[in-house]
Simulated assay, not measured.
Amino acid sequence: MIEVYIDGASTGNPGQAGAGIFIKANGTVKHYSIPLGEMTSHEAEFWALIKALEICTESSYSVVSFRTDSKIVEDTVEKRYAKREPFKTLIDKAVTYIDNFDLFFIKWVPSKSNPADQLAKKAIQLNRK
């Protein structure tokens, strides 16, 4: 099973944002810091999910277990529903990827247990380059 840790962060609400993705797959670890431009922290959390789903799809992973420190992302994915935009559009996009995995799990973890946290903060800095 592939373990995927995700985190999104922004410098304001909205502000410069970034996604951090940490993937443990078959004995290897991959790190991603992806600048996202300007958005809210909640939007960045959803974009971290989507970017990680894209990476897992491109890598042909079939069984993935995601970890996030965002309760809103975990709850929205579990329900597969969001009432308001932009989250409705973002969860709909995420579900199109999720449905292609043989098994998909998502679980909330505390920020201190999320190695993607520092990667998201690094991604914010990449917006400025």
Rank of each mutant, 00 (worst) to 15 (best):
E74L: 08
F46S: 15
G15E: 11
T96G: 02
G37T: 08
E38W: 14
I34R: 14
Q16M: 11
I91W: 03
D102L: 00
V73H: 12
S65L: 06
S41N: 15
G8P: 09
S65Q: 13
L126W: 02
K79C: 04
I21P: 03
Y61H: 09
A44H: 01
C56V: 03
N26R: 07
S10K: 12
L119P: 00
V29C: 06
V64Y: 01
N114Q: 15
L49Y: 11
L53Q: 03
Y81R: 14
W47R: 15
A82G: 11
T11E: 13
I50W: 02
Q16Y: 05
T11R: 15
V73W: 04
E45I: 05
P86M: 07
D7A: 00
P35R: 04
I34P: 13
I98H: 00
G27L: 13
F66G: 00
E54W: 12
S60H: 08
P115R: 02
Q118G: 14
R128F: 15
N114K: 14
R67W: 04
G27Q: 13
S62L: 02
S70D: 07
L103S: 05
A123S: 08
A52R: 06
S62G: 02
I6D: 10
G12E: 06
A9S: 15
G27S: 14
S62F: 01
T96S: 12
S65K: 12
I34H: 13
T40S: 15
Y97H: 13
S62D: 01
N13F: 03
K112R: 07
S113Q: 14
A116F: 03
G8M: 04
G15K: 11
F46R: 08
V109F: 03
L36G: 10
F101I: 01
L119F: 00
I34M: 12
K24M: 06
G20A: 01
Q125N: 09
L53W: 01
F87M: 14
K30F: 00
I2F: 01
Y61L: 09
G18L: 12
S60W: 03
I72N: 14
V73T: 10
A123M: 06
S59E: 05
W108N: 08
N13R: 11
F101S: 00
